Computed example of a mutant assay.
Amino acid sequence: MHELSLAENIRDLIVERAATEGFRKVEAVWLEVGALSCVEPDAMTFSFAAVMADTPAQDARLEIISVPGEGQCRQCRHRWQVRELYDCCPECGNFGMDVVQGKDVRVKSLAVI
């Protein structure tokens, strides 16, 4: 379950930012999760709540923003919305694709006090 290690990384980022920016409490975290990142939203929510105890983000609300996957065919350069990493190009049928978006997990913003 890599959601736990992702949540721990988010926790570390929040603790570091709280120390440098001087906020004492996080009310909400907006997290962009790519459709191709293999992150399960329910597991992420559970992991987030578990690792935020005794941090400025304890009891913070996690808002997950889904980012669709997008690929570009290496052969014909067609771009399309990708559901699986190994989808073939709907235009030419080629299986060589570069992921343009949708693999990342990123903290978009925090609501702090």
Rank of each mutant, 00 (worst) to 15 (best):
H2V: 00
H2G: 01
H2S: 03
L4I: 09
S5G: 02
S5R: 02
S5N: 06
A7P: 01
E8R: 14
E8W: 03
N9H: 02
N9Y: 00
I10G: 00
L13T: 05
I14P: 05
V15T: 13
V15E: 09
V15M: 08
A18R: 08
E21K: 13
K25C: 08
E27I: 08
V33P: 07
G34P: 11
A35E: 15
L36V: 12
S37N: 12
S37T: 12
C38F: 13
E40K: 11
M44W: 06
M44T: 10
T45N: 09
F46N: 12
F46C: 13
S47K: 06
S47T: 08
S47P: 10
F48W: 07
A50Q: 12
V51E: 01
D54N: 14
D54P: 06
T55Y: 00
P56N: 02
A57N: 04
A60G: 07
A60F: 00
A60D: 00
A60H: 03
R61C: 03
L62R: 01
E63L: 10
I65R: 15
S66K: 14
S66C: 07
G69N: 03
C73M: 04
R74I: 09
C76N: 07
R77S: 15
R77C: 11
R77A: 12
H78G: 04
H78D: 04
W80Q: 05
Q81S: 13
Q81R: 15
R83V: 09
R83N: 13
E84K: 15
L85E: 03
D87S: 10
D87E: 10
D87Y: 05
E91L: 10
N94I: 07
N94E: 09
F95P: 15
F95Y: 14
F95W: 13
G96K: 14
M97I: 15
V99K: 01
V99Y: 02
V100E: 01
Q101E: 07
Q101F: 05
K103G: 09
R106K: 10
R106Q: 09
K108Y: 01
K108V: 03
K108A: 04
A111M: 08
V112A: 02
I113D: 14
I113S: 15
